[in-house]
Design a protein around this nucleic acid. Structure first.
Lengths: 144, 144
DNA sequence: GCAAACCCGACTGGAGAACCGGGGTTATAC
DNA sequence: GTATAACCCCGGTTCTCCAGTCGGGTTTGC
């Protein structure tokens, strides 16, 4: 039940991109990686998956980089994580539960998974962005 | 977000033990393994962990086997899974979130984890046992 | 054309899941 | 009291996936 670095990195990157979303200027991998200290070559791969899934757009060539393809309030955490983790949401079709016990267990697990999914679906990138801003305000107050 | 075979096997075994709980007779590994077709040598390891955690008692020697140490309604699915998966419930103390972004993400993930945990904590072994019985009734009706 | 950026695919080291097997200990049954 | 049925413990193996690295290719702005 641990969040993988993979997903965490992706969220951090998108958060960073969300921060600069208003400007319309693309952000470079290096820049994001340095800001959130993520290994840049690794982040590159993650951004590629996010691009293929349509979360971000890329601008090639010098002065290129990445920017969000959608507005931050249109992206839920669930979408991001399920994309990066690569699970098809339907999923359980593969496992044919042999016994009635197996079926009941699968059912119980499914409800738990649903609960987590719902919690993640309710939060958008924008929410995190806002919380983040609020947290920085508080930190600043303590600093003074 | 897939249930590991490990946990599934443990749940199946405990379900099987719960079924025979009233009799007070111990059940053998072989028997359980055959019933739910689980590799028996593997099940042995899982039952050992469950024993150390106090979910089951073992009776050594001929005519020995395993039985539930507590009643089925006193065991929640969450307890079982967290025992077998081996995560300390407190957990996140290790990761010091460096940035405010990291903290916010961890927070969001935590709520999702909590939601899943709650769903699993609400269901006891007895619940599964009942559902299982109900399902078998239905299957029987269709069969006739 | 050159340098800054993205793009693509391969490779590795380590951890954990899912087993298998051997040898030991305990208790019942004859 | 010995054979046997069960649990007990400790290893090793195979496979997959995560986390990260690396070398090269392509696009584009200046």
């Amino acid at each position: 039940m641990e969040l993988s670095s993979k997903s965490e990195y992706a969220l951090l990157a998108l958060l960073e991109l969300g921060r600069g979303f208003a400007t319309g200027e693309p952000m470079q991998i290096r820049q994001i990686a340095a800001q959130q200290n993520i290994p840049d070559r690794y982040l590159e791969q993650l951004l590629a998956t996010l691009r293929r899934a349509g979360f971000v757009k890329s601008q090639r060539g010098a002065k290129g980089g990445y920017l969000l393809a959608r507005s931050p309030w249109q992206i839920t955490l669930y979408e991001i994580i399920s994309c990066i983790e690569g699970f098809e949401i339907g999923k359980a079709a593969v496992t044919a539960p042999q016994t009635s016990a197996g079926a009941v267990i699968a059912e119980a697990w499914e409800t738990a998974r649903q609960a987590a999914e719902d919690a993640l679906s309710k939060q958008t990138l924008q929410d995190l962005l806002d919380q983040c801003k609020a947290k920085q305000q508080v930190d600043l107050m303590y600093y003074i």
